[in-house]
Amino acid sequence: MGIRKKNKNPPILSHEFIIQNHADIVSCLALLLVLGLLFEVTSHVAGLFITVQHNVTISTNEGQEELAVNYFHHGPKDMATVFFYMLIAIIFHAVIQECLLDKINRKMHLSKIKHTKFDESGQLSAFYLLSCGWGISILLSENLMSSPVNLWEGYPHTLMPVAPPPSRFQMKFFYISQLAYWLHALPELYFQKAKNEDIPRQLLYISLYLVHIGGAYILNLNRLGLVLMVLHYFVELLFHVSRLIYFSNESRQAGFTVWAVLFVIGRLLTLSLSVLTVGFGLAGAEHQGPDLTTGNFNMPLIRVAVLAGICATQAFMVWTFINVQLRRWREFQQQLRKSAPPRSSRPRRDRGGPNAINGALGNVPDSPRTRKEKSS
C-alpha cells in the first residue's frame, strides 16, 4: 500500500513492479502534463487537463463601475480535468500511506485484517475531513445555509462563481475533486491488492458515490448535492475516526454509539432535504420542462428518478446498518455465553432450583437416592 520499500527487484512492467512503483509512475505522468504548459505547442492540450474548463465571463454594473465576474459550467472537457486530478489523488494517497499510516501501523502491531481496515479508515478520514471543511466554507461563502429556499431558488444553477471574494473556494473545482477522488479508488483496488471477496463491496459504494455526485453535477443540482455531501461526509468522518480510536484502544467504543445516532439523523435529514428541494421546490418552480441550452432538467420524470435514486440509496444504507448492528449484537451475546462459567462448576445447591429447567440437569450425575430407587 502506497510507496513501500522494495526488498527485491521484480521484472520491469510486471504486475508486482507496477504495484510497487505505481506512485512514481503516476507522478511522472502528472509531471509530464505540467511540463506541457511550458511549451506553446503542447500548452493547449496540457491546459485541458490542468486548468478548469468551460468558463464564462459576465459583466455586471455596480454603481458607476463595470465589473467582470468569472463563472464556470460543466461540459465534456471536464473529463480531462478529472483524469489529471485523479492522478493527483493517487499521489496523495501514496504519500499519506507512506508518511503516516505505515509508520503508525508498525508501532501498533495490528493483525492483517485490522491493518487493512486501519488503512482504509485513515485514508477516508483524511478525505472526509478535507471535504467537510471545504464544503462548509463554500456553504458559508455562498450563504446557502441561511434558508432552505436557496437550495432550489434560481434553478438551473449552471453558473458556478469563482470570485469575488478571492478566498472563496470554487464550487466547480470541488465537484471535479470529488469525482477525481472516487475514480482514483478504482485503480487503488489493483494497487492495494484488494481481496476478491472485498472487491464487489468496494465497487458498489464507489459506484454509488460516482453516480450521486456525477448526477448532481450534470443535472445542475450543485447546491443540494453540496449540502448532502457535507452532511454525509460528517457522519462518515465520525465513524472512521471512531474506528481508528477503537484500533488504538478496544475499550473506547463510545464513538460508535454517537455515530449510530447521527447516522439515523443524517438519513432523515437527507430524505427531508431531498423531498423538500426536488419534490416541492423544483415542482413549484417557474421554469418547467427540459431545456439543454439553459441546463434545465426540471421535469417530472427526472424529479421522480432523482428522488427514487436517493430514497433507494438511503434504504440500502439503513438496511446495511441494521444488519451490521444485529450481527454485532449476536457476536456480543456469543462472547457473553463463552465468558459465562460452565454449568458443572456452579454450586450443587443451584442444581435443583427454579433455574434447572429445559434439560439443565441432563448431564448431572444421579443422586444416591435415585440410584436406590432404580435398583428396586
Rank of each mutant, 00 (worst) to 15 (best):
N323R: 15
P187G: 08
R346G: 03
S14W: 09
I265P: 06
K6A: 10
G63S: 00
S137Q: 15
R330M: 05
T42K: 03
D291G: 05
F316L: 12
W259K: 02
N355Q: 14
E250G: 07
L292W: 06
F83S: 06
A260D: 03
P365E: 12
K112M: 00
P368Q: 05
D366Q: 13
E40Y: 11
L219T: 02
Y155K: 02
I25Q: 00
R223C: 05
I322R: 03
L336C: 14
N355E: 15
Q202P: 01
G289E: 10
L262Y: 07
S251H: 09
L37C: 03
D78W: 06
T320A: 14
K107N: 01
H74D: 08
N143Q: 15
S43G: 04
F297T: 13
I58E: 13
L210I: 08
S147Y: 01
G362H: 12
M317A: 15
T293M: 00
F39D: 11
M1C: 00
K114N: 04
R351G: 01
F49P: 07
L151Q: 05
E331F: 01
Y209P: 04
P164S: 11
V82E: 05
L271F: 13
N358V: 09
T158P: 05
P165H: 08
E16I: 06
T51F: 15
G122P: 02
I91Y: 06
S121E: 01
H109G: 00
S345A: 15
H115Y: 01
L219S: 05
L269R: 03
A89V: 08
Q97T: 01
F84M: 09
V318A: 13
D24H: 14
P164V: 00
V34K: 14
N70A: 12
G2I: 03
L67W: 12
R201E: 14
N150V: 04
A126V: 15
G63R: 07
Q314S: 11
R328N: 09
F169M: 07
P10S: 03
V227C: 02
K372H: 08
I357L: 04
